[in-house]
Deep mutational scan, measured.
Amino acid sequence: QIFVKTLTGKTITLEVEPSDTIENVKAKIQDKEGIPPDQQRLIFAGKQLEDGRTLSDYNIQKESTLHLVL
Results as ranks from 00 to 15, higher is better:
Q1N: 10
Q1S: 10
Q1H: 14
Q1R: 14
I2V: 06
I2Q: 01
I2F: 04
I2H: 01
I2L: 08
F3M: 06
V4K: 00
V4P: 00
K5M: 13
K5Q: 11
T6I: 12
T6K: 05
L7M: 14
L7I: 14
L7G: 11
T8S: 15
T8R: 10
T8M: 11
G9W: 04
G9E: 04
G9N: 06
G9L: 04
K10A: 08
T11Y: 09
T11A: 05
I12F: 12
I12R: 02
I12P: 00
T13R: 07
T13K: 08
T13S: 10
L14D: 01
E15V: 11
E15I: 13
E15L: 14
V16Y: 15
V16L: 07
E17P: 03
P18D: 10
P18K: 06
S19R: 07
D20N: 07
D20K: 02
T21G: 03
T21P: 04
T21Q: 04
T21S: 08
T21L: 10
I22D: 00
I22W: 02
I22L: 05
I22R: 00
E23H: 11
E23V: 08
N24D: 12
N24W: 11
N24S: 14
V25L: 13
V25Y: 02
K26N: 01
K26D: 00
K26C: 02
K26I: 03
K26S: 02
K26L: 04
A27Q: 12
A27P: 00
A27I: 14
K28C: 05
I29Y: 02
I29M: 03
Q30A: 13
Q30S: 11
Q30D: 05
Q30F: 14
D31I: 14
D31H: 12
D31R: 14
K32T: 08
K32Y: 08
K32F: 08
K32M: 11
E33R: 05
E33Q: 06
E33C: 15
I35G: 02
I35F: 11
P36N: 07
P36S: 08
P37I: 14
P37F: 13
P37R: 13
P37Q: 10
D38C: 15
Q39W: 10
Q39H: 11
Q39M: 12
Q40A: 05
Q40I: 11
L42V: 03
L42W: 01
L42N: 00
L42S: 00
L42Q: 00
L42C: 01
L42M: 03
I43F: 15
I43D: 04
F44Q: 03
F44C: 04
A45V: 07
G46D: 06
G46Q: 05
G46R: 04
G46N: 07
G46L: 03
G46V: 02
Q48P: 11
Q48R: 08
L49N: 00
L49I: 04
E50I: 08
E50P: 03
D51C: 06
G52V: 07
R53H: 11
R53L: 12
R53C: 12
R53F: 14
T54W: 04
T54S: 08
T54G: 03
L55C: 06
S56H: 12
S56Q: 13
D57I: 03
Y58K: 01
N59F: 08
N59T: 05
N59C: 10
N59H: 10
Q61A: 11
Q61P: 13
Q61W: 07
Q61F: 09
Q61R: 09
K62T: 14
E63W: 13
E63L: 12
S64V: 07
T65C: 09
T65N: 04
L66S: 01
H67D: 09
H67Q: 10
H67F: 13
L68K: 00
V69R: 11
V69F: 13
V69L: 13
L70D: 10
L70I: 14
